[in-house]
Design a binder for these strands. Sequence first.
DNA 1: TTTTACATCACTAAAAACCGTTAGAAGCAA
DNA 2: TTGCTTCTAACGGTTTTTAGTGATGTAAAA
Lengths: 219, 219
Amino acid sequence: MRKIKVHIADDHQLLIDGIEAVLSSEENIEVVGSSLNGEDVLDWFASNEADILILDINMPKIDGIAVLQSFLKNGIQQKVIVLSSYDDTKLIKEVLKIGASGFLAKKCAGEHIVEAINAIYCNKQYFSESVKDKLLSTFTNNLSSIEEMSKESSFFSSLTPRETDVLKLICKQFNSKEISIALHISTNTVETHRKNLINKLKVKNVVGLAIYAMKNNIV
Amino acid sequence: MRKIKVHIADDHQLLIDGIEAVLSSEENIEVVGSSLNGEDVLDWFASNEADILILDINMPKIDGIAVLQSFLKNGIQQKVIVLSSYDDTKLIKEVLKIGASGFLAKKCAGEHIVEAINAIYCNKQYFSESVKDKLLSTFTNNLSSIEEMSKESSFFSSLTPRETDVLKLICKQFNSKEISIALHISTNTVETHRKNLINKLKVKNVVGLAIYAMKNNIV
DNA sequence: TTTTACATCACTAAAAACCGTTAGAAGCAA
DNA sequence: TTGCTTCTAACGGTTTTTAGTGATGTAAAA
């Protein structure tokens, strides 16, 4: 019998080992590789292949979203199950749009990951219960959700290097003046970057920025 | 042979199942229970016992710190291995002070959890490599670290209910006026709570508050 | 009973953040 | 070349946060 080849990507080795241990009792599933960050995922898939990629969103360097976008850009048809700590509706829609086949919240049980792998291997989709609920409530609460989805697009448009620099320092609780000194630029420039960050990430203030940064492991 | 009884507490069922799967291959270790939040941990330990508690810091309702404090308060001598996504020096020192015997960053490998359980069962301490590095660098960088530790004490002194209310709304990117409306109090009061939060948590501004909230799963 | 912690509100003044808009220079790609 | 993005910078103005200090009522704890 041909086994389903799985690659696991998560920045917590403990979770990788855990999932691997869960899957080891499944006879038709084989873990063929793992990565601790998005860069490693792309490197691995450049010279290897797997049937299914289990991909965490929150990873350092290159995050899960960027990995999916890279697959999309390069026309790689990879079956992906997205893992996330947050079952955020925006996040779910976004990853589905950019090519994920399934979405599992980390709070779901280990058995579901087996179900998800089997379902997606058979070209089905898979969502954990909590995720289904979230999605349904959005559709019932808002009839124009399709338009909204397109508006929400490019929500995860990646930040420029400089914006990332500024964001990191914001999260160190630096104010604009301190950031300007650290980066050797004027405070006006720092404030421009701040404004652009707030607009780009569609948040209201620095708190939104900090939370975005935390959720996306920029900190 | 008597098996080491282990209880696992983490808000991600997937991680619990993973650790359980990792431990299932160990003959001398037995998982006797698990909890998805701090409240469940306290309930469980009220009528059961385990040799070792593997305790995640970031949990909803009652977090890991509060669980440890509760053990301390009630004179319960429980061997605890603390799990955390963040190998923050402050955090490590704090949990050791309030009774943890070991500290594992989630980014460490599954095998280390087995090592940690065995070591702590024999009344030793256990730290993952990254944690050791962090601690050492603090001691070398700062000779007066002992005094600092005592200063840092009560860092995690829990917030009052009202402060928590305000903090939650801050994390929703509400400003003071919006918070005052939401909580039916004056903006002056809201600003007092903000000030107290900033002083109590020893942060510089709202960003520090937001990050604290994220790390402690208040959001 | 006295102290302590908590929640509430107020006033001032300075610092910082936020908003909108404009615009030049550099680099890269169609 | 032209268009696009990024980084840089500036101006003027409004809103919000932060810091410091003080004060009151209430309820629980010592």
